[in-house]
Design a protein around this nucleic acid. Sequence first.
DNA 1: TAGATTGTTAATCGATTAACAATC
DNA 2: TAGATTGTTAATCGATTAACAATC
Lengths: 224, 224
Amino acid sequence: MKDKTPAKNSYLTIQTLQRMPYYLQYLKKAKAEGRTDVSASAIAAELQLNDVLVRKDIAAVSSTGGRPKAGFNVCTLIRDIEQYMGYHTTKETVLVGAGSLGKALLRNREFDMYGLKIVAAFDVRRSLIHKKINGVEVYSLAKLKNFCLRQNIQIGIITVPAEAAQDVANRLVDGGIQAIWNFAFVKLQVPEHVLVQNEDLASSLAMLSQHLRLANEMGESWIE
Amino acid sequence: MKDKTPAKNSYLTIQTLQRMPYYLQYLKKAKAEGRTDVSASAIAAELQLNDVLVRKDIAAVSSTGGRPKAGFNVCTLIRDIEQYMGYHTTKETVLVGAGSLGKALLRNREFDMYGLKIVAAFDVRRSLIHKKINGVEVYSLAKLKNFCLRQNIQIGIITVPAEAAQDVANRLVDGGIQAIWNFAFVKLQVPEHVLVQNEDLASSLAMLSQHLRLANEMGESWIE
DNA sequence: TAGATTGTTAATCGATTAACAATC
DNA sequence: TAGATTGTTAATCGATTAACAATC
């Protein structure tokens, strides 16, 4: 019997990775309903995905194989996914830009669930400095780099206006950060080893717009 | 000479669509710098994309072909993209959930640029009702459906907690909405004609986590 | 047993990239 | 002209799906 534990330094495609939180959500619902096993087919049906796809995704992170006829053990699978996703390891992060979006993120309680902990906020506005938002203190932007270095912070969240984002990114990079979660709409220039995850409202809006346009055109006429 | 105007009811793949805002951003920068023409190759280089890809994307929305040696006229291309993306047509929307994330979105000035206008907010909390946030009045959730029907609203933004999201979605659908921008982390069940665009913080976080895990493992050892 | 389910291998599909002729 | 650039057609690549044997 082969060891089924997935290689520690294997990696998932971004598509697979992005489906994981949805699997997790479904599994937790199943657990809450008292089910002990779920089949890949059931997950696929609920999330409107192909069942082979779901099986492959699960195979990539699961410590055990599924049992024919029964499926996968809910608790084990939840643990395996959370483990793989790193939800059990606390990731200390800093947030830069304590404006309304920054505040909203600071107040978001869901991040706990994912192991994300915002340990400090930074801003240029004097009026905000040394204020606390949801227990997190706001510091001067000037202190950002050294704070990151000293505390060995690996993730930075950028919620400043677009114009200021590149400067903040530079400071984070100088502070030794590995990954940036960027809510400003600019393409940031960073060294290769740093990941920039753009939270892309403009792209989302583009999807909405196109849908409306097509919906409205279809409503009007079908003339080619 | 063929008519180069793209078919009105053509549609772009989501990949192409999501690159458009980045093209636009680059073009606007180029315009601000006083350039009159840009080449697809230049755009590709800046955004780290393949140049053929950029050409194909542009061809799908441009009213004119590019000129060999010169490239595309900046102003025309900006107009064409904005036109295609519907940035020139105002899209009236409602926002449900005037919590901190909702407030952050209500205060976001960038939406103007995309033709998105939030005309009303809704919440269940008594204390918020009839308050104004950035000039937008908050109404009782009970009024949501009729408001949408009366004003012929087509887009709804959901910024309520996950547990409440499906109920809100149902009300929006009953109100005749065509598209939902969902910031709650739940898979919403809606009729086929309604688009749900999930703003997926959990998936983004998954990307960050995986990057850190791989970066750290690589730092530790290279043993296979 | 029959049937639900897993998991593998091969086929399909669609997006990206490469090659190249056409144009200014 | 030579060279930069466009835009098309064909090749590649990778993700998804189909087919099917294995298992409980």
